[in-house]
Simulated assay, not measured.
Amino acid sequence: MAEQKTKPTDASVEAFLDAAEPPRRVEEGHRLVAIMREETGEEPVLWGPSIIGFGSYHYVSPSKTSRAEGDWPKVGFSPRKGALSLYGLKDLPEGAALLPQLGGYTEGAGCVYVKRLEQVDEAVLRQLIRIAHARGEDPARDA
């Protein structure tokens, strides 16, 4: 089994966010850290070079051909140039069902893309973060 490439680091989340481009991503990134910190009660950790995560859980891929497992943030984001990439929000059925109420977003394979933080419903975002962060607390629910 290949070694997981994206792991928690000791790098400064603050310095990473302050270097984000375009400039509005700096403000949005700091705002997201504040929201995620409030909703999870956890401090942010930089995973690899570009993902800010809160909490972690151990996953095992359901693939029968190439078993993969490792640790991943329960919820997180990356302030990418084209959009904010939000991780963990649609992984659980409860989050996937709530996602359409978020506002302006698009989806990728494992994440939700938001072009501008102001275009989403903050109350729904906060609820999605709480759902994602509760992962692992009830194994029957997460199945």
Rank of each mutant, 00 (worst) to 15 (best):
residue 1 M to E: 07
residue 2 A to T: 11
residue 4 Q to E: 07
residue 5 K to L: 11
residue 7 K to A: 03
residue 7 K to I: 11
residue 7 K to R: 14
residue 9 T to I: 13
residue 11 A to M: 13
residue 12 S to M: 00
residue 13 V to N: 08
residue 14 E to V: 13
residue 19 A to P: 07
residue 19 A to V: 14
residue 21 E to Y: 09
residue 21 E to Q: 11
residue 22 P to E: 08
residue 22 P to F: 02
residue 23 P to T: 09
residue 25 R to A: 01
residue 29 G to K: 00
residue 30 H to Q: 10
residue 31 R to N: 08
residue 32 L to P: 03
residue 32 L to R: 02
residue 34 A to W: 04
residue 39 E to C: 14
residue 39 E to N: 12
residue 41 G to Q: 10
residue 43 E to D: 13
residue 45 V to P: 10
residue 45 V to E: 01
residue 47 W to Y: 15
residue 48 G to H: 13
residue 49 P to D: 10
residue 50 S to Q: 13
residue 50 S to T: 11
residue 53 G to H: 07
residue 56 S to A: 10
residue 56 S to F: 05
residue 58 H to V: 14
residue 59 Y to E: 05
residue 62 P to H: 08
residue 63 S to L: 11
residue 63 S to K: 10
residue 65 T to E: 12
residue 67 R to L: 12
residue 68 A to N: 12
residue 69 E to A: 03
residue 69 E to M: 04
residue 69 E to P: 01
residue 69 E to W: 00
residue 70 G to N: 04
residue 70 G to C: 00
residue 70 G to P: 04
residue 72 W to N: 00
residue 73 P to W: 02
residue 75 V to W: 03
residue 75 V to R: 00
residue 76 G to M: 00
residue 76 G to I: 00
residue 77 F to R: 06
residue 80 R to L: 12
residue 80 R to H: 15
residue 80 R to I: 10
residue 81 K to S: 14
residue 84 L to K: 03
residue 84 L to W: 01
residue 86 L to D: 01
residue 87 Y to L: 12
residue 88 G to C: 07
residue 90 K to V: 02
residue 91 D to F: 14
residue 92 L to Y: 11
residue 92 L to S: 03
residue 93 P to L: 02
residue 95 G to V: 02
residue 96 A to T: 10
residue 96 A to Q: 15
residue 97 A to W: 04
residue 101 Q to P: 13
residue 102 L to N: 09
residue 102 L to A: 09
residue 102 L to H: 13
residue 104 G to W: 05
residue 104 G to K: 15
residue 105 Y to A: 01
residue 106 T to K: 07
residue 108 G to C: 10
residue 109 A to D: 09
residue 111 C to G: 06
residue 113 Y to V: 00
residue 120 V to H: 11
residue 123 A to D: 08
residue 127 Q to M: 02
residue 127 Q to T: 06
residue 130 R to H: 04
residue 130 R to P: 03
residue 130 R to S: 07
residue 133 H to R: 06
residue 133 H to N: 10
residue 134 A to C: 05
residue 136 G to P: 07
residue 136 G to K: 06
residue 141 R to L: 06
residue 141 R to S: 08
